[in-house]
Design a protein around this nucleic acid. Structure first.
Lengths: 129, 129
DNA sequence: AGCTTAATAGGAATCATTCCTGTTAAGGAT
DNA sequence: ATCCTTAACAGGAATGATTCCTATTAAGCT
């Protein structure tokens, strides 16, 4: 990987991701920072989100309504996604058991880099139409 | 939901999904069936995949390289996705514990419709570049 | 056989994401 | 402090998966 230089905009993006539990999309990050960085480009948002993910500073949570959602909190935890409103909420860490993933890796022939446990359904507000 | 009529093409799609463990994309379904159904349209593939998912006869496994992957096997199980070659493999059911999801639903205010446990990493063939 | 409307083809439209080109600016080297 | 290399960037074009639209066909009841 090439050298990573300091970048005001990327720093702001990471700060934004770390300061919210909303799991914003690229578009939402763009709109949130545009006022402070009027010449911010959407391409820059995508490029920096990809880089933050590569560096392990952010995570792709999953696709909601065709848009990827991002999380700046990298401590192991799980997510709930509302199928109606698209809200993404944090859940405590859910694991399939100690050493389970490692055993499966041996058995099925893979090395795990990451595990995601995602619950999809309806949130409180969306249950009653 | 509207009445569901018989459809040769949709039947063929479901049979294809049920007869493979490859978790094909819409494009792959299209290419697999095009020889037998020369006038098959990609729009029809997308429409029927969506309908099969609504009916609970198929599942969206997740996005790999920007393309959604589909699974015709609906018995609870998990998936491994290779980050390099994009292969999607079945794993046995992995659950976070009996009644766990229900408890979380009560605690965090949601009703779960589905749970996915996905492991991402490198498969055997891709490990050694 | 007639009727309602789901299913369809084919092509246009949408829209998230990536690519491209020229420019700017980190930050190490001189 | 100035020079140099190249990462970061804007802005806009390109890509590509998916959805939408319109006219046509065909399930499958009556």
């Amino acid at each position: 990987m090439a050298i990573v230089r300091q970048s005001k905009k990327r720093d702001a993006m990471l700060a934004l991701l770390r300061g919210t539990d909303q799991h914003p999309s690229a578009e939402q990050v763009y709109r949130a920072l545009k006022p402070d960085y009027p010449d911010l480009s959407l391409a820059t948002v995508y490029r920096n989100l990809a880089q933050l993910c590569e560096q392990g500073l952010a995570l792709r949570v999953g696709t909601v309504n065709g848009q990827e959602r991002y999380d700046g909190h990298t401590r192991p935890h799980s997510h709930f996604i509302c199928n109606r409103c698209g809200r993404v909420a944090d859940l405590p860490r859910l694991s399939p058991g100690e050493g389970c993933v490692e055993r499966l890796g041996v058995q099925y022939g893979f090395t795990a880099e990451r595990c995601e446990f995602v619950i999809r359904g309806l949130c409180k507000g969306c249950e009653d139409f």
